[in-house]
Each structure stands twice: as structure tokens, then as C-alpha cells.
């Protein structure tokens, strides 16, 4: 594929060296530590009693844990929905902001604001604007006669499952937008001009030029977003703490509870290792499919 300087990899090693050193110094130990703990029975409250149990944690999670599979299913639904919606929204806005309109710089910054707000603050304000009694969204919808009773955005289990997806999309789409906008910038204008001369309309040039050209960027940003969303703890926790009645419980919250409130850090590490294996299998296959289609 890429030819470059393939004969002189030494220079390449030199280029990746700074990042390798940092990662070896800081990231590898915590990761290996996590793997090691996953084979242990280790309760933080009684550190003296920790001992090696082999694959016991894994078999417990997979075969006897009553909580795991239910949480796994919602985790997947949640993650897929967030990635898909934030991609669509991010792409739509990137396309709009790529048009030569005036003040687009200002619009671009304005639309990126969700990213700037500390998550804790965003969560408090979301629940205020979505409140059934004083929230501006319900007040507006009721006054304009669109709905009668208030929508219980966070007060009804199934609605809350959708609400946390939407607020997570709110947090995620700016990344998609920025990356896709950069991707759009990389598509040579000549391609569109040629297509225009050949009589292609906007829709055709979108499907036959824009989308294929964005493929590389798309595969990377959706993969990363999938991993981040699947592992994200605070988006949901800050808004609902996994409630009501654990309807919005996802694996990172389960891991957190297990590790800290139940103090079972070995068991929690095992859950994380399973998550890692699932994510790795999925993302490598996903990336391979993307590559082969190119």
C-alpha cells in the first residue's frame, strides 16, 4: 500500500519513540495491573485476604451473575444509538458549515459549545431545562399546546433511556462534526467540479464523492466514539445515576459500583477485561470491513 521509506524503518521507530516511552511509563502498568487483578479475589476493604482465583471471576460473570447480561444489552443499544445519531448530526452540521456562508466561523464555535461546559454543570442544567414543573422545554411545549401533560424526561424508565441517549449525543456530536469537517476540507474541489460537468446533482455527488472520500475518517471516528461511549461513565451517571430503578444502568456504572462501593476490585477488573475483549473483537472486525471495501 504505502511505500514511503519502507526500507528505512529505523527512522520510523525514532518517530514513534516519544509516544512509546510515555505510554510505557504511564499507560501500560495500569492496563497490566487490571489484567492481573481480573484473576484475583480482591476486596479493597480486606486487602490482606486477596488471592489468585484463576478464571473464577469470569465464569461468575458469564454464568451466575444475574445483573451482567441485562446491563450488557442496554449498554449496546445505548452505544449504537449514540454513535449513529451523533454521526448523522455531526455530518449534517459539518456539511452545512462547509458551505460558504457568512459568519460560519461564529456558527462553528457556537455549535461546539456543548463541549466546553464541565459535564457536572451540563447535567444539572439539563435536568433543570427538562424538569416537569419548571423546565423550559415542558413549559414551552405545554404553552404552545403541543402536549398536554408534562413529558417526564427523566421520570419514566423508558423515556429516560431515550433521554440519556439524546444528552450523550449532545456531548458527542461536536467531536464528529469537527473531525468530519476536517475530512470534508480534504476533498479536492476538482472532484465536485468534474462531477458537476458530468451532470451529477447534489445528491449524487454526496453519495459518490463525499461519502467515499470520508470513509477513512468515518471508520476512525465511529470506532473511537463507539469505544468511548461504551466505556463512558459520567454521561449517564451524572444525569440519572443509572436510574430510575436502574433502567439506565450501563457496564461502566456496574464496574464503578463493583470496584468502589462493593470494593470488589478483582471482579470489576474482570468485567472490564470482558468489555475490552468485546470491544477489541468488534472494532478490529469493523475496521477490517471498512478497509476491504475501500
Amino acid at each position: 500500500m504505502r511505500s514511503g521509506y519502507s526500507r528505512n524503518n529505523a527512522i520510523g521507530y525514532f518517530f514513534i519513540l516519544p509516544s512509546v516511552l510515555l505510554i510505557l511509563a504511564i499507560s501500560i502498568y495500569p492496563l497490566l495491573n487490571g489484567f492481573a487483578l481480573s484473576g484475583m479475589k480482591y476486596n479493597l476493604l480486606s486487602p490482606g485476604e486477596r488471592h489468585f482465583v484463576g478464571l473464577q471471576n469470569f465464569s461468575d460473570i458469564l454464568f451466575t451473575d444475574g445483573e451482567f447480561y441485562g446491563v450488557l444489552v442496554y449498554s449496546f443499544v445505548y452505544t449504537i444509538a449514540v454513535v449513529a445519531l451523533s454521526y448523522v448530526l455531526g455530518l449534517a452540521l459539518a456539511l452545512l458549515l462547509n458551505i460558504g456562508i457568512r459568519a460560519r466561523g461564529l456558527f462553528r464555535a457556537f455549535i461546539l459549545v456543548p463541549w466546553v461546559v464541565p459535564p457536572v454543570i451540563a447535567a444539572v442544567n439539563w435536568s433543570w431545562v427538562l424538569n416537569d414543573q419548571v423546565g423550559i422545554v415542558n413549559l414551552f411545549l405545554q404553552r404552545s399546546g403541543i402536549i398536554h401533560g408534562a413529558i417526564l424526561f427523566l421520570g419514566n424508565a423508558s423515556v429516560a433511556q431515550i433521554t440519556v441517549i439524546l444528552t450523550s449525543v449532545w456531548k458527542s456530536f461536536p467531536f464528529m462534526m469537527v473531525v468530519l469537517l476536517a475530512g470534508l476540507q480534504g476533498i479536492p474541489k476538482e472532484l465536485y467540479e468534474a462531477a458537476y460537468i458530468d451532470g451529477a446533482d447534489t445528491r449524487q455527488s454526496f453519495w459518490y464523492i463525499t461519502m467515499p472520500m470520508l470513509k477513512g475518517v468515518t471508520s476512525v471516528c465511529t470506532t473511537l466514539m463507539f469505544i468511548w461511549t461504551f466505556n463512558n461513565f459520567e454521561n449517564i451517571y451524572l444525569l440519572t445515576q443509572g436510574g430510575p430503578s436502574r433502567a439506565t444502568f450501563v457496564l461502566p456504572i456496574l464496574t464503578y459500583f463493583t470496584a468502589f462501593f462493593r470494593s470488589e476490585i478483582g471482579y470489576a477488573s474482570a468485567i472490564s477485561v470482558i468489555m475490552l475483549v468485546v470491544l477489541l473483537t468488534l472494532s478490529l472486525n469493523y475496521l477490517r470491513i471498512f478497509k476491504s471495501r475501500r
Binding site: G34, I227, M275
Partner: peptide, 12 residues
């Protein structure tokens, strides 16, 4: 590098 993203932050 991809794997490094996959381990939940709270355990690190």
C-alpha cells in the same frame, strides 16, 4: 493504542 482506549478509566 486502540486497546489502551478500551479499559474503563475508573479502574486506572
Amino acid at each position: 493504542l486502540l486497546v489502551l482506549q478500551m479499559f474503563p478509566g475508573v479502574l486506572l
